[in-house]
Design a protein around this nucleic acid. Structure first.
Lengths: 222, 222, 222, 222
DNA sequence: GATGAATGAGTCTTCATTCAT
DNA sequence: AATGAATGAAGACTCATTCAT
């Protein structure tokens, strides 16, 4: 799945390089840009294998040997492209965080009513969670393994939700007040619904889950 | 903080023994009952040290040596009271899960309006999160280290919320439909608010956060 | 040979602790004091095995596994008593440096004529080099592996020689001027003679080598 | 500095090839003769980079990648010109040993009084040590990394000193007996003075150091 | 000749767990 | 019960060397 969007890690690299002056560490932990096509394939294979391995076993029970075996490359090749196990994990989190961010873009572009927008975003997100449960595990575990990347992911997500509802408020589409706190409430809701109905048990469809949960945004419990 | 309620682990032990037949693992991982007063103090010291250590460093970066040093006991004593590092962690999670459960009890007993109830529960929970951030880290990390205990914690929490709102619905205090999905939405909201405003940054008071977030349950975004 | 003077590493430890405030590093790299008799034996066995191993293969070709195997202890035991391979090496150098220092003490105490003194010291030193050639290799390699310890060793040695000849000069036993440079010349002489005639080839007896070399101190080449 | 005498490695190669039958190792470790001008420049760049790297970090902390990066050539190019890391080091030692040997030639040609000769040689050597301290490190470390080359260097050096003083003795310029042991004493003196006053601290001028040290050859301590 | 990706043996180091005292 | 020494499996990481392009 990571492999499907071959350019993404490179993309992340580019983005990170632009903000590279902020911290040596961050810059140092970026994946090393392959210089040949073969190199690109190897790096890709490692990333895909790592996503699967981390998703299944978690960070600490995953091992570099095992990842490289999965990827069908030599152990040493890992270090041609990544500084360390942590750096790989972080690269993966940044990559996945970006994927999650992409989910909402087309929906937001449709410029619906704010409650409708959040409904669609949630639906899309639940589908994604169901199809990419390993991503869940990885981003969640980042809280402990790559706290910076984890914070960036959630602060970013909450920030975007907040921006959306604030804009709606300004357009007069929301009557009550609007606060960052609402955004964190919504992201928490989404994350737990994704976890429960997308990852742990899939006993309800994404559409149904989203519709029922969305009632809270529509009219509260009342 | 664990230490303050000296009986809790023992309590948990008792509870768990009752359901002990379910799994060898569960039974095997229970803390070993101390037989003397001195033993009780040692076990307590280890539990407290472990809560601090796990809270600070996370499961994998915590070590048994370091925990026993913090506790001021010999390394070998650890295995007198716990089967393994995992068993200790699990005992801690069960213990903490129980503490969190206790938070809501007095509030629920007051039998308020359902939205009011959730408001109070959330306020209480945010206060707790602010004062016991290490518990957050431990319960969260349990998703990867002690998945059973983690599931038990959240299924339990969502289940209790669901029970509350279902009862309110039956009492006619809620107009719309009521679903387990709502319960998971609410717990997710609570957890993320606790994390954001209790653990990561404490820039808003528990009461304020709870009040603003509760607007969603009261009337949605509208 | 290290083992013969069972107390020496402990002795070094004690000495180093007294100057311990100078550098965290130095303090951190000290051998960990064993708390039981068994521990003392284990540490001793490791030190002896290490002296042999380093002496034979040099620092980089020696491995911790191999040292612990030689010592008949488990790999992990190494880290109970030493911080790292480097720390072990350094401990050994300090230990040996001390041994070398001890060589001269009884001779100096005899208070002979200065040239006689240096003759005796050299003789004694050559005997020692012949019997402990591994010490040579270790101290010499310290120039690259533990430069601090190495410098301390040679500055100390040269300093003591200088002190001896200066005192002799003050007693009127030396006519010409006396300089630190003379001390470094003498120590260099001794070291190379030890290496050539004690370690590399033993085709001349210590007494003979010392006697002939000492002619230089007695009357120069003339 | 190595680069300044571009022909030297090639020169060494020639010399070594003549005695090549002695050992497969020696023959095998010779630098591979470049066939084009471009190749010559590449080999030169590697040698210069290696001298700097080995001088700074020592043999084991130097790496081929790093050396080739310094040299501005590709990693693979290294193996076009050298058999192995050890072979490169050895080539360097032979090269430097030859440089050191060259130092004395013009002085010896002047045919002075023997003590005068050694004074001049030492002065020249101290100047050289001060200006080429990395050479010191490399030759010294050869004791452990390329023992053959190291022995050749010092046996050669001692042999030449011995030849000089023996000849002087035969010319009647030295009264006392003359022995190989004297030669080793002198070379040890020189080496340690070079290390102390040329490499470690440069607090005395080469001329002063040589003059004071030379008193020993002139009249001993007396 | 030059390049740099790929390889994998080799090492240090950590740490949960056991057990003799 | 308490102690802490001993154990060794496991895993991250390095780097000299090879080889296809």
């Amino acid at each position: 799945m990571v492999g499907k969007r071959g350019a993404s890690v490179t993309g992340v690299t580019r983005v990170a390089r632009q903000m590279g002056s902020k911290s040596m560490d961050a810059a140092a932990s970026l994946p090393r840009e392959p210089r040949t096509e073969r190199g690109r394939r190897t790096q890709r294979a490692i990333l895909d294998a790592a996503a699967a391995e981390f998703g299944e076993k978690g960070f600490h029970d995953s091992s570099i040997v095992s990842i490289t075996q999965r990827a069908g490359v030599a152990l040493g090749s890992f270090y041609t492209y990544f500084e360390s196990k942590e750096a790989l994990f972080k690269a993966l989190v940044l990559d996945m965080s970006e994927q999650v961010r992409q989910l909402a873009l087309p929906i937001v572009a449709e410029a619906l009513d704010p409650v409708e927008t959040e409904l669609s975003v949630l639906t899309r997100f639940l589908e994604f969670a169901r199809d990419h449960s390993e991503i869940y595990r990885i981003i969640d575990e980042a809280e402990f393994v790559a706290p910076d990347a984890w914070r960036a992911h959630y602060y970013g997500g909450a920030g975007r939700i907040y921006a959306r509802i604030k804009a709606a408020k300004e357009r007069g589409e929301i009557a009550g007040e609007v606060d960052e706190i609402h955004a964190w409430a919504i992201i928490g809701m989404n994350v737990f619904l994704g976890l429960r109905y997308g990852v742990l048990e899939r006993d309800r469809s994404p559409a149904e889950v989203a519709a029922i949960a969305n009632q809270l945004l529509q009219r509260g419990l009342r």
